[in-house]
């Protein structure tokens, strides 16, 4: 990609493993791969969607970016500066630029802290301004986050607010330092559907007015389409498809992306969205370790090739790339010959 020097954030070959401890049923410890050799680069001012199911590693990716965790392999750079193993003061400076909105607003605010204190916390820890300045900024961001009149909210405790309001407080807190990168980890999944639109609107405002780059982590293709400029689809820790949001959703190339689109409720305003049927309802026996990560569930897989060989990234169209042996230019993967196809 030609403009790589302009990228604000880069993940290069990032992997993260969790060691599980043995217990009485499963002797000995094992390793769970949360992320496997992930490469990503974000452009300034874009909303980048990371789409996947729970356990796909999308949240882990977000936590690595804000450095709540350290990757086991690979490197992460922000504006060309390696932040993979930052500590102490360097890490604090980094977090002035990179903030996060967590999934569950019922859990991400300290129940014993008033809204004013919670939102002002990043300012206090980074020693910004005096109390009066801080208050002004707190009122300002609460307003930006759609909590107005802000004066009504600052004396309250989180349990006196609705879920949607709490999430807006969490966003206010994340943008009070005017970060250049914001990680939003499924900010609407714990909320009523009717609140999502509000949150989306606020996030768009944060990008448009503050020029922040946003990583939007979600399980919803529809939400990603609405909000994001580019998206990446992640499956069991492996990125499988990446590209402009519109292209990936209108002409998905990877069988897993297609399965996600199949699974999205389509009632109303979705005429013309095809059904792909690429997902095996029951998994087939696992292939080799080195095979395609989607092999077990892929209806299009070819046994010999897909079970044993890790696919390569292929360009589908323009910037859309796909990790599939059968991905081809034009967006559609040709179905493999009938005799190679495996039964469900």
């Amino acid at each position: 990609m030609s403009q790589s020097h302009k990228d604000i954030l880069k993940l290069e070959g990032v992997s993260k493993f969790y060691r599980t401890r043995g217990n009485r049923y499963r002797r000995g410890g094992g390793t769970v791969v949360a992320l496997s050799r992930v490469n990503l680069s974000l452009r300034p001012g874009e909303i980048f969607g990371l789409v996947g199911e729970s356990g796909s590693g999308k949240t882990t990716a977000g936590r690595l970016v804000v450095r709540l965790e350290e990757p086991d392999e690979g490197r992460i750079t922000l504006d060309g500066v390696d932040i993979t193993h930052l500590k102490g003061g360097g890490l604090r400076d980094y977090r002035r630029k990179v903030q996060m909105v967590f999934q569950d607003p019922y859990q991400s605010l300290n129940p014993q802290m008033t809204i004013a204190d919670a939102v002002a916390e990043p300012l206090i820890t980074n020693k910004v301004g005096d109390p009066a300045d801080r208050l002004e900024r707190v009122l300002g961001v609460l307003d930006t986050a759609g909590l107005s009149p802000a004066e009504d909210f600052i004396y309250r405790f989180p349990h006196q607010l609705s879920g949607g309001q709490r999430q807006r407080v969490a966003i206010a807190r994340a943008i009070v330092l005017e970060p250049s990168l914001l990680v939003a980890d499924e900010p609407t999944s714990m909320l009523d559907a009717s609140y999502s639109a509000q949150i989306f609107e606020i996030l768009q405002g944060v990008r448009d007015q503050m020029g922040a780059t946003i990583i939007f982590i979600t399980h919803s293709m529809a939400a990603a389409r609405y909000l994001c400029d580019r998206i990446a689809v992640i499956y069991h820790g492996h990125l499988v498809e990446q590209g402009p949001a519109e292209a990936v959703i209108n002409s998905p190339s990877h069988p897993y992306t297609k399965a996600l689109i199949d699974a999205t409720p389509k009632f109303g305003r979705c005429e013309g969205v095809p059904t792909y049927g690429t997902y095996l309802p029951a998994p087939r026996p696992a292939g080799e370790q080195a095979g395609c990560p989607f092999f077990q569930r892929c209806a299009l897989a070819e046994r010999l090739l897909c079970s044993a060989t890790y696919p390569e990234w292929r360009q589908v169209a323009g910037e859309q790339v796909c990790l599939c042996h059968f991905a081809a230019e034009g967006g559609q993967s040709p179905p493999p010959p009938e005799e190679c196809r495996l039964g469900g």
Binding site: V66, R95, Q107, P111, M113, E121, T125
Partner: peptide, 26 residues
Amino acid sequence: QRPFIDAARVAGASHTRIIFRHIMPN
């Protein structure tokens, strides 16, 4: 383990602050 402690870390809170401002009141 509660996410608000992670949130405090992302907000740049030091260990001292997390202990006294977030854990202790709870």
